[in-house]
């Protein structure tokens, strides 16, 4: 197809869900590595945590929190679509999921700095 359907809001929501899911999966090994440091190497963990005080890292963390909440709220919308009686307001719900994630992500950033 020419791709015009790919600019449809719900099709974009689907791609956002896929990309955020994959990005979260890529991030997980790093997350587990850090958790592992907490158990095995306190000194290394402290160096690492100091590195995370860097504002750029904070922005990246806010991005990750944003991805997680995008995926969470978007996933809840999909589960509601599939398991609750049909609602025609899917675009509204997708937009609400996206804006809720912006709030969560910004909220994280403001409380982190």
């Amino acid at each position: 197809m020419s791709g015009s359907h790919r600019r449809d809001g719900l099709r974009i929501a689907s791609m956002v869900h896929r990309i955020s899911g994959l990005a979260l999966a890529l991030f997980l090994p790093l997350h587990f590595y850090t958790l592992g440091l907490a158990l095995n190497d306190a000194a290394e963990l402290d160096t690492f945590l100091r590195w995370t005080d860097n504002p750029l890292v904070k922005i990246a963390e806010a991005g990750l929190v944003g991805l997680l909440s995008l995926h969470l709220f978007g996933g809840l919308r999909l589960l509601a679509l599939e398991f609750l009686p049909w609602s025609p307001r899917q675009k509204l719900y997708a937009a609400l999921a996206a804006s809720a994630s912006v709030f969560v992500s910004l909220g994280f950033f403001l409380s982190a700095v």
């Binding site: 449809d8 719900l10 099709r11 999909l78």
Partner: peptide
């Protein structure tokens, strides 16, 4: 099905 709703749109 990934619930894209393209089917419904068209």
């Amino acid at each position: 099905c990934h619930s894209h709703q393209s089917c419904m749109t068209y």
